Amino acid sequence: MFRQASRLLAQTLRAGLRPFSSDLPAAPTSDSAFIESWKKVIPNIEPPKTPSNFLRPRPATPTSIPSKITVNFVLPYASELSAKEVDMVIIPATTGQMGVLPGHVPTIAELKPGVLSVHEGNDVTKYFLSSGFAFIHANSVADIIAVEAVRIDHIDPSLVQKGLAEFTQKLSSATTELEKAEAQIGVELHSALNSALSG
């Protein structure tokens, strides 16, 4: 029975009745063919949710460049900024520091340990990020997802210096590849923290 339902789903997809795009409304009518087919084959089980059930329409790309960029900055356990309109953000991309202004070209950037700067008028809020991704959309929205982040003003410089010294010593005395790799990560992270605090 499940095999028949999956075959019907594949036929529906091949027929082009379900275009997969984030421009679709949350409950597209094209899902109705799949749901009807499912109910014919397996009437006593609810049809599964399809990806299009979870998609929302993408906001239209503005005809003129807005004066602000909307930033969503999230961590696995918290939302630091939600739909915050700012003048500019500077992100620590693996390719180098990247300034993002309203009207920025759509981009996906991998983040490296470094400083995220959020510019709002004369106010600049800085966060130290461990890693993550930034998604810059055509509608002047930036979604920044980080594994870990902390505001720069919450970092204790003495602990950073202590950690850098410890990991540098571990790197010089490491005997296995695993010990070297762990120590190298520690040195790179603490060096980036040190640079963030001094710059």
Results as ranks from 00 to 15, higher is better:
E85C: 14
E85R: 14
V86Q: 01
V86D: 02
V86P: 01
V86E: 02
D87T: 03
M88F: 04
M88K: 10
V89S: 04
V89F: 05
V89G: 05
I91R: 01
I91E: 05
P92M: 05
P92L: 01
P92R: 01
A93S: 12
A93H: 06
T94H: 07
T94V: 05
T95M: 14
T95W: 12
T95Q: 12
G96E: 12
G96F: 08
Q97E: 12
M98L: 14
M98H: 10
G99Q: 05
V100L: 03
V100N: 02
L101Y: 09
L101I: 14
L101R: 05
L101P: 01
P102D: 08
P102V: 14
G103T: 08
G103A: 07
G103P: 02
G103I: 13
H104C: 09
H104S: 11
H104I: 06
H104P: 03
V105H: 09
V105I: 09
V105G: 04
V105L: 09
P106Q: 15
P106T: 15
P106F: 15
T107S: 12
I108D: 08
I108N: 12
I108P: 00
A109R: 08
A109L: 10
A109I: 07
E110D: 09
E110Y: 10
E110K: 08
L111D: 11
L111K: 10
L111T: 14
K112Q: 11
K112I: 02
K112N: 07
P113Y: 07
P113C: 10
G114E: 04
G114I: 03
G114W: 01
V115Q: 07
L116W: 01
S117E: 14
S117D: 10
V118S: 06
V118M: 08
V118P: 00
V118Y: 06
V118R: 01
H119G: 06
E120F: 11
G121C: 13
G121W: 15
G121A: 13
N122H: 15
N122Y: 14
D123G: 10
D123K: 15
V124T: 15
V124P: 00
T125I: 12
T125G: 08
T125P: 00
K126D: 05
K126Y: 07
Y127E: 03
Y127C: 07
Y127A: 06
Y127G: 06
Y127Q: 09
F128C: 12
L129R: 04
S131V: 13
S131A: 15
G132A: 09
G132D: 03
G132P: 06
F133K: 15
A134S: 14
A134D: 13
F135C: 07
F135P: 03
F135A: 08
I136Y: 05
H137W: 09
H137K: 10
A138Y: 04
A138N: 03
N139V: 02
N139H: 11
S140W: 07
S140I: 08
V141S: 06
A142R: 02
D143P: 02
D143C: 00
D143F: 06
D143G: 03
I144M: 03
I144S: 01
I144V: 05
I144A: 04
I144Q: 05
I144Y: 06
